[in-house]
Design a protein around this nucleic acid. Structure first.
Lengths: 195, 195
DNA sequence: GTCTATATCGCGATAGAC
DNA sequence: GTCTATCGCGATATAGAC
């Protein structure tokens, strides 16, 4: 069976948003790209804001899975690396989100609180991993709670904004660049962790 | 003598953009806030894009000064810190810029190339400072060129996106928060530099 | 569910008087 | 330099037929 219209609208919207930004794309454009009439689009979604929210929710669902940590053992540095890499992969499918995120969150309180919750899970992931290391004596330098928080802050900053930084300087977004971001994070952590 | 109309338009636009975002603010709104007619606004600026460019140029001029390094002596860690703090101060007067930057730069190639040039100066500032340390033997660990570049990458990431990160989590933007950003940067550099 | 037709609105931009 | 008046356009959203 063919894909539901409701989903095709989202696919079309995501594609257009990624290429032109949410501001330049109207509901008429989305309807046309989805191969339906403007009126039909409004049967499925109240307005553009709701379409944006639905796309965010798609990404949230993907991130929520990516932010899972192993529960049966202590996380390792490799876990951090794949954690970040998957995060980058998901983000790169939704480029319009990181390009306009702050502005979009400001305009939609529902979206903002949803994002802040998802974000907290990712941040706490970093904190948990670093804290786990600190407790297991795998450190070259002992670190206090404040330093753990700071290291998690930097890790989060890299995972949230590294792709933005590349985008601004017009660099392509690919596996190589993902690795560069991962390497930056490892450089920050390296002085504290045993190899 | 009272301020020129051309400047009052920019002041009004900056204020509205910071509060509501460029998308929600029309030229009519700007004219009203500036206390002039819509027609008069178009006498001074071709369109909204040109107003946005003019505001960017204001910020560029301020950043360009902030990115000056001492030429009569080697830069110090204190130089880095004030460098970043001033950067934060300037950015915080133009919040709409960092909120929408990536999207705005994508829509305006003129703006993008201007920004990339200014940005390069800031980045090279970090690189120069770190390299100066590396050459003067003030390091606890020797570092190669690649590491210098990576450290500069991280420093730049913090200085460019730390305020964005605060904004997303709805934290106030003030001196204390500026200092937190500076502290993060120092944490990254600390393992390599002698106290 | 999907279409066509349409109402309403506000934006960007210009013309022309002063 | 500044104003008023206005045109043309496209966007959002709804009504009603199929």
């Amino acid at each position: 069976m063919a894909m539901k219209t409701k989903d095709r609208i989202l696919d079309a919207a995501l594609h257009l948003f990624n290429m032109q930004g949410t501001g330049a794309v109207s509901t008429n454009h989305i309807a046309e790209a989805a191969g339906i009439s403007p009126g039909n689009l409004y049967y499925h979604y109240r307005n553009k804001e709701e379409i944006i929210r639905a796309i965010f929710e798609r990404q949230f669902a993907a991130l929520d899975v990516a932010f899972e940590l192993p529960t049966d053992r202590l996380p390792t540095l490799e876990d951090i690396q794949s954690f970040v890499r998957v995060n980058f992969e998901i983000m790169s499918a939704y480029t319009f989100i990181y390009r306009e995120m702050i502005a979009l969150l400001r305009q939609d309180a529902v979206l903002r609180s949803r994002y802040i919750a998802i974000r907290a899970r990712g941040y706490e992931g970093f904190q948990a991993i670093i804290a786990a290391y600190a407790q297991s004596g795998l450190l070259t330098i002992p670190i206090d709670d404040h330093t753990i928080t700071q290291l998690a802050d930097i890790c989060w900053l890299i995972s949230e904004f590294w792709l933005s930084s590349l985008d601004i300087s017009e660099q392509p977004i690919n596996d190589n660049q993902f690795q560069r971001g991962v390497d930056l994070m490892m450089l920050v952590l390296k002085p504290y962790f045993k190899p």
